[in-house]
Design a protein around this nucleic acid. Structure first.
Length: 843
RNA sequence: GCGGGUGUGGCGGAAUGGCAGACGCGCAUGAUUUAGGAUCAUGUGUCUUUGACGUGGAGGUUCGAGUCCUCUCACCCGCACCA
């Protein structure tokens, strides 16, 4: 009598084996091996590495199980699989803990890392643990600094003073990407504008390639591409020069065709010319107070589209280059300094915002694109801005041209006069990477009074974080107060110098970790080129959609820069991307504050890792959000228990007495009942393979495996005398089906798979080749077709699978439920869908 | 406002334009008589049940629509004064 299913026992047993044997160690290629990772030889499966904030949650379980199923499957397919793990370990969480408790962030972080590490091992994830890394360790951030210096030397990292997003609660600046509708993405505080000198990466130089190279991706979710495309926000148009006294002010517009309708001109409150334009005029006081008010406004208030448009006249006028008209210049806060040039020409007739402003301040509205009647009142006056297509009117020599031709013609005409040119503008801003916080990668730059700004020499890296006592941010980096550290000597002249007090955005750390995995043990290079050439780009990347813009766009940018530096041979880091959905509980995203967190450890303890993994895979398609259900995991546990019983009983009955794989009897020896199980076995192989390899639909793969298990049970039940079939042939069919069941289930429930396989007298299920469906057995010999009359199912008919159309029709017409409906009618049309149905159309 | 997505039993969810509801949960009845979280069998969309109706709603294309097209409603996600 076999033991009952005891997940705890078998799971720890196999985890120890995998650890001891280093089963999932992925060796780098040796010098003799081909350097290229192309083809089926090698594959790189990667899940987004966790941020060690405490312990792993259900989202992690889903993420790492999905990757594990893919990694184990690919190993079965004979590929050498790189499946590493690490920790995104710098960041605010540990630092906030430090502020509260005084514990060093490193100590807290390492503790959180070991917790997550233990949890992942307990889940049985097939990881090459020899490549484990953490971004907060000096052996890693040394190379983050080195990469920063490479960017710096190429002019791609630069410092500038600019209005930046300041989070008053985090006490640090934020990248544009980290501001969500005017609030900090971490803490929801309203972001303030602040003028600071900060480090930036010149990601805008790569805007065009970030857009163009979507073509180089094999399979990414369309919505991620769309989000990035919108974020980059490319618009084509023209830059047009307006003259204001002795000044020339350039505007960007996507609608140069409407230039004749520009009836006023607006500058952003922050525009550098504002002061000078109003200096000494009667308008000065009013303008200045408007500017102060606008700049003091919170980002959310200012950005609100609900808010009524406000502005103030400067008393000055600009010359419209198309007709020499003098148009009044206003200051208005709906014009943003950080898009375009911070100045616009306002065309109220064809821009909603300008229309609202014009109506409020009584400015003229001119129709320059022929607008539909519903945009006008009885007098022909525009009652709303018309932004659609149409022919130019009131535009002098350009009248009658359609919109797109107008754009080209007007721009070309002005270009000849040196007053305009075609231009492309992006919403994307340079990536602000300075953070006024302690727990991050120090910026390897020193400032010398005589030599200026200098990079720390490479041989002095890593530039280590100093020990400090007070982690609390006070509007500037805690490092600024670490005097022994901040004061240094200039590497060039040896004179007094200071270090940069800021640390890097943690997205810098995570923008290259997938490269470090190729050779994390190398202390002389950031990564080993041969190993990178062998493994990368990542064949399958899996993670949450919340990184659609930030991490994924920054990593693409990094890869392109490294490509330009000749450090890597590819321009896109992640060939295929899969974005997983979230796990909800009680209708909401799990979170500590809502008190609806389901702890994975409890379920592992109760049902085992295999049940938890399988249930999470079974809950729904990987990409969709799903609701956790405590009863659901019980059902999955019961299923695994049924499989356990099914297989151990078969073993006890001597089905696997020989250690050689069981072979099917000759096809001619198969009874219909036996053939039925053989066909089911092969169909399920086909289905599971497709679902794992092509569709990422693990829920339906498991459903198919459950069906196979049910079919095996039924087969046994139908062998009346002896439980395991009365003939050798039946036993063989049953053995093959049972063996297949274990192998197909193994990527989901690897411990159960390993244990049952061993009990069957075999070894190392993880190295077994993946089952291949036999095309002879993918279809039954007879098929049951639905027979419809006028589209309604009236009866069914069973015919040989190979029956001709004529035979099928003849049979279909004779079945009673159909004949009844054909009586007295004339047949108009006959449709036969092989293997599916027959539809007879009658009148 | 713009862009994207999703709507199917009591629940999670299945369905290359071809028998809607696979698989699982839950529930019901029965069997075992139950010390282990059970197990096994059968059933389980709705209704006025010889049949009809059913995939948010209304139209359309088609022999045939959950699936394609048009309009519409609800919810979710992203962006949001981007000139």
């Amino acid at each position: 009598m076999a033991a009952t299913y005891d997940p705890e026992r078998i799971e720890t047993k196999w985890q120890e084996v995998w650890e001891r044997e280093e089963t999932f160690f992925a060796p780098n290629p040796t010098a003799e091996e081909p350097a290229s990772g192309e083809g089926p030889g090698s594959t790189y499966v990667l899940e987004m590495f966790p941020y060690p904030s405490g312990s792993a949650h259900m989202g992690h379980v889903k993420n790492y199980t999905m990757g594990d199923v893919v990694a184990r499957y690919r190993r079965h397919k004979g590929q050498r699989v790189l499946h590493p793990m690490g920790y995104d370990a710098f960041g605010l969480n540990s630092e906030n803990v430090a502020i509260q408790t005084g514990e060093h962030p490193a100590a807290f972080t390492e503790r959180a890392i070991s917790t997550i590490n233990r949890q992942l091992r307990r889940l049985g994830v097939a990881i090459d643990w020899s490549r484990e890394l953490a971004t907060c360790r000096p052996d890693y951030y040394k190379w983050t600094q080195w990469l920063f210096i490479q960017f710096y030397n190429k002019g791609l990292a630069y410092k500038k003073e600019a209005p930046v997003n300041w989070c008053p609660s985090c006490q640090t600046v934020l990248a544009n990407e980290q501001v969500i509708q005017g609030v900090c993405e971490r803490c929801d505080s309203a972001v303030e504008a602040k003028k600071l000198r900060q480090w930036f990466f010149r990601i805008t130089d790569y805007a065009e390639r970030l857009l163009a190279d979507f073509d180089k991706l094999e399979s990414w979710p369309e919505r991620v591409i769309t989000m990035q495309r919108n974020w980059i926000g490319r618009s084509e148009g023209a830059e047009v020069v307006f003259t204001v006294g002795e000044h020339e002010i350039t505007v960007f517009t996507t609608r140069p065709d409407t230039l004749f309708g520009a009836t006023f001109f607006i500058l952003a409150p922050e525009h550098p010319l504002v002061d000078e334009l109003v200096q000494g005029s009667v308008y000065e006081a009013e303008v200045r107070s408007y500017v102060v008010a606008a700049m003091g406004m919170s980002a959310i208030d200012r950005a609100s589209t609900e808010k009524e448009k406000t502005g103030v006249f400067t008393g000055r006028h600009a010359v419209n280059p198309v007709n020499g008209a003098l148009i009044p210049i206003y200051i208005a806060d709906y014009v943003l300094m950080d898009y375009g040039t911070g100045a616009i020409m306002a065309v109220p007739g064809h821009d909603e915002r300008d229309y609202a402003f014009a109506r409020k301040y009584g400015l003229p509205v001119v129709e320059v694109i022929e607008s539909p009647a519903e945009f006008k009142d009885d007098a022909g006056e525009l009652t709303a801005a018309y932004a659609g297509d149409g022919l130019l009117v009131n535009s002098g020599r350009f009248d009658g041209l359609p919109k797109t031709e107008g754009i080209r013609a007007v721009t070309e005409w002005l270009r000849e006069q040196g007053k305009a040119d075609f231009a492309v503008n992006y919403k994307l801003r340079d990536w602000l990477l300075s953070r006024q916080r302690y727990w991050g990668c120090p910026i390897p730059i020193v400032y010398c009074e005589t030599c200026g700004e200098t990079a720390v020499p490479e041989e002095q890296l890593p530039l280590l974080l100093p020990e400090i006592r007070d982690y609390a941010p006070k509007g500037k980096s805690p490092l600024a107060a670490a005097e022994h550290w901040i004061n240094t000597t200039c590497p060039t002249c040896g004179g007094a110098a200071t270090r940069d007090p800021d640390t890097m955005d943690t997205f810098v750390d995570s923008s290259w970790y997938y490269l470090r995995y190729a050779s994390p043990w190398r202390d002389d290079v950031a990564f080993d080129r041969a190993a990178v050439d062998y493994w990368l780009p990542v064949d399958q990347y899996i993670g949450g959609v919340e990184h659609a813009i930030l991490h994924l766009m920054y990593s693409r940018f990094f890869t392109k820069v490294l490509y330009d530096l000749g450090l890597v041979g590819f321009e896109e880091p992640f060939r295929n991307l899969f974005t997983q959905g979230m796990i909800y509980y009680k209708g909401a995203k799990m979170s500590k504050s809502k008190g609806n967190v389901v702890n994975p450890d409890e379920h592992v303890a109760r049902y085992g890792a295999d049940s938890l993994r399988s249930y999470i895979m079974f809950m729904g398609p990987g990409e969709s959000d799903v609701e956790w259900n405590d009863k659901g995991i019980e059902g999955t546990f019961r299923f695994l228990t049924r499989v356990w019983r099914q297989v151990t009983e078969a073993i006890d009955a001597g089905l696997f007495a020989s250690t050689a794989p069981r072979r099917l009897p000759d096809e001619t020896a198969l009874t219909p009942r036996m053939r039925g199980l053989v066909v089911k076995t092969n169909q399920v192989i086909e289905k599971v393979t497709m679902d794992i390899a092509e569709r990422f639909h693990f829920n339906t793969a498991l459903a198919a495996i459950m069906e196979l298990n049910n079919e095996i049970t039924a087969f046994r039940g139908s062998a009346e005398d002896e439980e395991f079939g009365r003939t050798q042939d039946e036993a063989a069919v049953l053995a093959v089906a049972t063996e297949t069941l274990v192998r197909l289930l193994e990527p989901f429930a690897p411990h159960l798979g390993a244990e049952l396989w061993e009990m069957m007298g075999r070894e190392r299920v993880w190295d077994e080749p993946w089952p291949v469906a036999d095309p002879r057995f993918l279809a039954h010999e007879t098929v049951e077709l639905a027979v419809q009359v006028n589209g309604r199912v009236r009866d069914r008919v069973t015919v040989p699978a190979a029956a001709s159309r004529e035979d099928v029709l003849a049979a279909a017409k004779q079945v009673p439920g159909v004949a009844k409906h054909l009586d007295g009618m004339s047949l108009v049309k006959e449709i036969v869908v092989p293997g599916k149905l027959v539809n007879l159309v009658v009148r």
